[in-house]
Amino acid sequence: MSIQHFRVALIPFFAAFCLPVFAHPETLVKVKDAEDQLGARVGYIELDLNSGKILESFRPEERFPMMSTFKVLLCGAVLSRVDAGQEQLGRRIHYSQNDLVEYSPVTEKHLTDGMTVRELCSAAITMSDNTAANLLLTTIGGPKELTAFLHNMGDHVTRLDRWEPELNEAIPNDERDTTMPAAMATTLRKLLTGELLTLASRQQLIDWMEADKVAGPLLRSALPAGWFIADKSGAGERGSRGIIAALGPDGKPSRIVVIYTTGSQATMDERNRQIAEIGASLIKHW
């Protein structure tokens, strides 16, 4: 067993022997301040990774656009098919120029040779490549099948209805392509620590998230040296922004954090800054 596999296998073990965790309302004060600064709703939840206990939450059962955070769930569904012998990570998928959609920095470079399922998941999570996500959605049967996968996990809230990039439209009061912070946090925890996926697939999923290259201005910008984070960000229309993450000190994750916002007129930089400040408060009061 590799060191990384050992780390993920012992996530519940280490967490069980940690000192009790206590909620700190100071972080919620910052979440509410972010709402004021952005002029928009902000949803927040913080779960203990081992027990699933909610440590703090704000608007945990209000719907927010998922945006690209759905790509972690998508690759979880792909990995479940791999575990069941219905898919192979090494299978190569070929596609054409007509398949390319807006923001496809990886797939646009491989029109000639195609990409493997493993490479597509890596591109979808680490670079948020939209064509990679659409190609992977095709392998599982489309958005409705991802929703069905989530329902089978016990998540009857999260739903995907459309493809990239239309799913980022974020129309107010439109339930399409949305989740709730509580539902997303619980589902992410199941994917990373539950028995739904094999140990190898859980490790692969967290490795992809740990290698995320496009979430630097968010929670990662607030992390002290030595902290662990595996995350996936999302951005959408109407001032929408979000991030889902597993993080913790001492090089291992111990909490799940989900943050979503929508309806702001603020710039992307300002949305990023507010999420980073929430992260800084979380870490300060850990």
Rank of each mutant, 00 (worst) to 15 (best):
L137H: 04
L150D: 03
E108M: 15
R271G: 11
A222T: 12
L146S: 02
V257M: 07
G114N: 11
L111F: 06
I125F: 00
T69L: 03
A246Q: 07
M115W: 02
D48P: 00
T186V: 14
S80T: 11
D83R: 04
M209V: 00
L135P: 00
E119V: 02
N50G: 09
E145L: 11
L79F: 04
A34Q: 12
M153R: 08
C75T: 15
L89Q: 07
K32Y: 12
E46T: 14
I244D: 01
L205P: 00
A77I: 11
R255L: 07
S233C: 02
R162V: 02
F64N: 01
T267S: 10
L205Y: 00
L136W: 01
W163Q: 09
L196P: 10
E61Y: 13
H156L: 09
R220W: 02
G216W: 07
A266K: 06
H156G: 09
A124P: 02
E102L: 08
P105E: 11
E270I: 06
P165T: 06
S221K: 06
S51V: 10
R255I: 09
L188P: 00
E119R: 05
L100P: 03
D250P: 07
P143L: 05
G141F: 05
S51T: 09
T158M: 02
F58N: 14
L111A: 06
T262C: 09
A185R: 00
V72K: 04
M180K: 07
S221Q: 13
Q88N: 15
L247M: 14
A34H: 04
T178C: 12
E26S: 12
D48R: 03
L218M: 15
A266N: 11
K109D: 06
G248K: 01
L167C: 13
I256A: 13
D250M: 07
N98T: 08
D129Q: 01
A225Y: 06
G114W: 04
Q265G: 08
A276H: 12
L192R: 01
G239T: 03
T267V: 10
D155T: 01
I278P: 00
Y44E: 00
L223N: 03
G85L: 07
H94S: 09
D99Y: 09
K213M: 05
Y103I: 05
R271N: 10
P172A: 14
L197R: 06
T116C: 15
G216H: 11
K144G: 09
I206S: 10
V101M: 14
S240Q: 12
K71A: 00
L223D: 01
T193N: 14
L79K: 00
Y95T: 04
A170P: 13
A211P: 04
L73A: 13
D174C: 10
D113F: 11
D207G: 11
L167E: 02
R189I: 10
K109R: 09
S57N: 09
K252C: 10
A235V: 06
S254C: 13
T262I: 06
A225N: 14
L205D: 00
A276Q: 10
I259F: 07
E87F: 13
A132C: 03
L219H: 03
A133P: 03
D269R: 12
D33W: 06
I275G: 02
E145M: 12
T178H: 02
M67W: 00
S254I: 07
V101Y: 10
N130P: 02
L199C: 13
V106M: 15
E210C: 08
T69Y: 02
S221A: 15
E277W: 06
A132T: 03
T27L: 11
M66E: 02
A183E: 08
L167T: 11
F58T: 12
V214Y: 06
A170Y: 05
P60I: 15
G114Q: 04
Q86W: 14
D83T: 05
A276M: 13
S104Q: 02
A200P: 11
D83K: 05
L247P: 02
A222G: 08
T112E: 15
H285E: 07
M67V: 12
D161N: 08
T187I: 11
G248S: 04
A170I: 09
Y44R: 00
Q88H: 14
E119N: 11
T158Y: 00
T139M: 15
S104H: 05
R273A: 12
L38K: 09
K190I: 15
L205W: 04
E46M: 12
E210L: 12
M180V: 09
L28H: 15
A77E: 08
M268R: 08
R92W: 11
R81P: 00
T138S: 13
L47W: 04
G76P: 00
G236F: 02
R255E: 04
E195Y: 15
E270C: 11
V101H: 06
A280K: 15
K71F: 02
S51K: 06
A133W: 00
R220L: 04
T138N: 15
A280G: 11
E46K: 15
D177W: 00
R220N: 02
I229T: 03
R176A: 07
L136I: 13
C121L: 07
E102S: 08
A215S: 15
R63E: 11
R273H: 06
G216S: 11
E102M: 09
N168K: 02
E61H: 12
S264E: 05
D36A: 12
E102Q: 06
P165Y: 05
W227C: 00
L219T: 03
D161T: 09
M184W: 01
K30R: 10
D269S: 15
L74I: 15
A235G: 08
V258H: 00
T262S: 07
L223Y: 03
L282E: 04
K109S: 08
S281Q: 13
I140R: 03
T131P: 04
N134F: 02
P249N: 08
E175K: 14
P181C: 12
R189C: 09
L247N: 01
K232T: 01
R59C: 04
A84R: 12
I125C: 08
Q86Y: 15
P165F: 05
T262G: 09
D36G: 14
D113K: 13
E145C: 12
A148H: 08
A84H: 13
V78N: 03
R238S: 10
T267E: 07
L74A: 14
V31F: 02
G242E: 01
G279L: 05
G251F: 09
Y44W: 04
I259S: 01
L38G: 08
A200G: 13
F70C: 13
P60A: 13
G239M: 00
L223S: 13
R91K: 11
L218I: 05
G251R: 11
L205C: 02
Y260Q: 03
A77T: 06
E210H: 14
A185W: 00
E61P: 01
D161A: 08
N152E: 15
Q37T: 06
V42C: 15
A200V: 14
M115V: 09
E270S: 14
V72M: 04
N168C: 13
E56L: 09
E87T: 14
E169W: 08
S51M: 11
I244F: 04
S104N: 15
A222R: 07
N168P: 02
G236E: 03
G141W: 04
A222E: 10
L100A: 05
R241C: 04
L218F: 03
M67C: 12
L167W: 01
A211M: 15
K53E: 07
I259R: 01
N130W: 00
A182T: 14
G216R: 10
L196E: 06
L247S: 02
E237I: 07
L219G: 03
M66T: 08
L167V: 13
T112D: 11
L191I: 09
E46V: 13
K109T: 10
D48C: 06
E166K: 13
L205V: 10
Q37M: 08
T178Q: 03
R63S: 08
W286M: 14
R63F: 13
V42S: 03
L79S: 04
L79I: 05
S122R: 12
A280Q: 08
L247W: 12
L55N: 12
H94P: 07
T116R: 12
R189N: 07
L197T: 05
E26D: 10
A40G: 13
V106P: 03
Q88Y: 13
A132M: 03
Q265N: 10
I125P: 00
G234A: 13
E277R: 06
